[in-house]
Amino acid sequence: MTADTYAEAHPASEFLSGVRASIPVIVAAAPFGVLFGALAVENGFSASEAMLMSAAIFGGASQMVGIDLFGARVAPWLIVFSIFAVNFRHVLYSATIGRYIAHWTPLQRFVGFFFLVDPQFAEAEQRVEKGRSLGFAWYMGVALPLYVFWIAESGLGAVFGRLIPNTQALGLDFLLPIYFLGLVMSFRKRAMWLPVVGVSAFVSVVAYHTIGSPWHVSIGAVAGVLVGALFAPKAFREKRP
């Protein structure tokens, strides 16, 4: 506990504590980053274009969809729209995290929100859940290593992608769902967790088969959020002055 208090007061050590939190995330995302680079080249990207996409968009799933559609020669505006659709869930992250960063300067917010990817959001939420403040130094300590490694992995995959033996046998395509499952489980102490997860899962699977990807993510998420909004004990609490 004393170490935490100390960390809050010193931006440098808070930053380092963020870097430590980023390490497992980097391990989990690394195969995916390399895979993105390899697939980007297969779909007609150069190594530098793959790295530019990772640096500018910084959103794994949306980048995968982007290169896939580009390879299929889909109209550019539709590719851009699909990237937007895949990333639409970030609106919810942004609204959620916004509650804890009232003490950030406007510039810190403009910079910080750029890095609000799934694991960044999950790490930040877990930190808030532990009752600790969400400082800009800690946040960037998580974000910058993720960002730098993500770009580097895209480049590595683009250059050396052909050397990856059998991605199926290595399970690379399924590491991310496993990682996201781990994140879902880490929030299981929250109010209404099981109903939220159950409804999100059910609605997203139905939407996946009816409306189609990537909208199943936003639709399933909104369904789960509504369960929380309508039934969580907090929703019935009297407004405090």
Partner: peptide, 27 residues
Amino acid sequence: RIHPRVEAGLDAVPAAVLTTLVAPAAM
């Protein structure tokens, strides 16, 4: 001021969104 219902909904965001990234893959 954020309404308690909105607040409760936002608390459900991590589990709700991340679940949708797993469920179809699991199915």
